[in-house]
Design a protein around this nucleic acid. Structure first.
Lengths: 229, 229
DNA sequence: CGCATTTTTTACCGGTTCCGGACAACAGAA
DNA sequence: TTCTGTTGTCCGGAACCGGTAAAAAATGCG
């Protein structure tokens, strides 16, 4: 069963033309859309305007190393392809955010299978465009939120928090997870800020909807309150 | 700081005791909760009552083959471990739903990294890490506990204790182990405190369920009481 | 540059939870 | 039984956490 309908876009980042061409050919034969980049800087440039569903990243790159661009990729699964077979390399790359690691030379059938595995994941691929929860509606494209029709003006952070909470209703979101998602690269110690943001968000929602929507779980984090009609 | 709170449960399905024991030891050292099963049928039986966060599945199993139980697992990532290195095996297993595939012998560091990759996934909305025992249900998602449907409000420590006890039902948990897991950053948290926590936990469960669920083993520790219907 | 908005820090309060001692109740050994 | 070590529970103080307001710092905008 091939992906003949749901053609996903795969981004090949590889300076080696021969391997890249072979991959492109195989992937296209499988019905995938293919993007190409031949250096790390080029890859980042492409990623600024396009959002592929999967990235095949060769580590040996001119200019920016693969290791350096991996942390800059967010929300897209990355399969690292490398000639290095040492465990240290695999471990460090996987822990740095890679979704999988294949050693050259590899069997293309296995690569194709592992690509399917990644694309099968409904994680970030289709970022839900609209969320709805007990009167709160949140649209991703317009970045607007309304409670029972009344528009509510939220700041960027408040919006991010609410989105994360509404994406997993009735599930506790850890404070650490919230902090990671909201302010990506601050080392630590803004747990107090989170409290303030939650407080402000609560207030705005309460002013618009008349009730408190966010529940705090002592010592753990926050969740959307279960509302019974 | 280490993730003391979010210890995930990993389910090892392997009939080979030596490999299984080694895995269990390593995983526990990493702070994971471990479940074991030694056959396919046993694995399915366990999965009816518990929902781990990840499954390590050895293909060579007595009775039900690993291939047969893989399709029955839904919503939990499965890392297949097998001695067969042929591409056909990898491909078929990956396409059948496996999240990853490791060939024996493998480097445990790589396995640990790949486990992290799977657990890192903002997992399927499905309820992971749910435990059920004689009317007590404990869900990791909502961080809530209920006895025969009645919600019980537990402290963070109480929750941790109960989770540890319920993860290994009818097995004595030593006081020292409980102390290690619960207050990771207190040098030697007094044993008297643990007694208090257990006492409070007992009281809350008793108030909701009408009976005492925790049994104390003189001089050793605690375990869940065996309850006959 | 000045101004407005947003984010972060700081401080404080009230409530929750934890700790560890005290002491009675209990189980096991002699 | 008596003695000894363990367990269950009560309790006060300490430490911690969460909510909010106000100030300070950072950011965006014209």
């Amino acid at each position: 069963m091939k992906n003949t309908q749901n053609l996903s876009t795969i981004f090949i980042i590889d300076d080696d033309a021969s391997i890249g061409n072979m991959l492109e050919e195989i992937l296209k034969k499988e019905g995938y859309q293919v993007l190409r980049a031949y250096s790390g800087t080029e890859a980042l440039f492409v990623l600024e305007r396009q959002k592929p569903d999967l990235i095949l990243l060769d580590l040996m790159l001119p200019g920016l190393d693969g290791r350096e661009i991996l942390p800059k990729i967010k929300g897209i699964p990355v399969i690292v392809i490398s000639a290095r077979a040492e465990t240290e390399d695999k471990v460090s790359l996987l822990l740095s955010g890679a979704a999988d690691y294949m050693t050259k030379p590899f069997d293309t059938r296995e690569l194709l299978a592992r690509i399917v595995v990644q694309l099968r994941n409904p994680s970030v691929a289709g970022t839900a465009s609209a969320l709805e929860f007990a009167g709160i509606s949140l649209s991703a494209d317009t970045h607007q939120v309304s409670v029972w029709g009344l528009p509510v003006k939220l700041t960027r952070t408040e919006y991010a928090i609410l989105k994360l909470l509404m994406a997993n209703p009735s599930q506790v979101i850890t404070k650490t997870l919230l902090l990671e998602r909201i302010s990506e690269d601050t080392p630590d110690c803004m747990e107090s800020s989170l409290r303030v943001h939650i407080s402000n968000l609560r207030k705005k929602l309460r002013d618009a909807g008349g009730q408190d929507y966010i529940e705090s779980v002592w010592g753990i984090g926050f969740k959307m309150k279960e509302i019974e009609n």
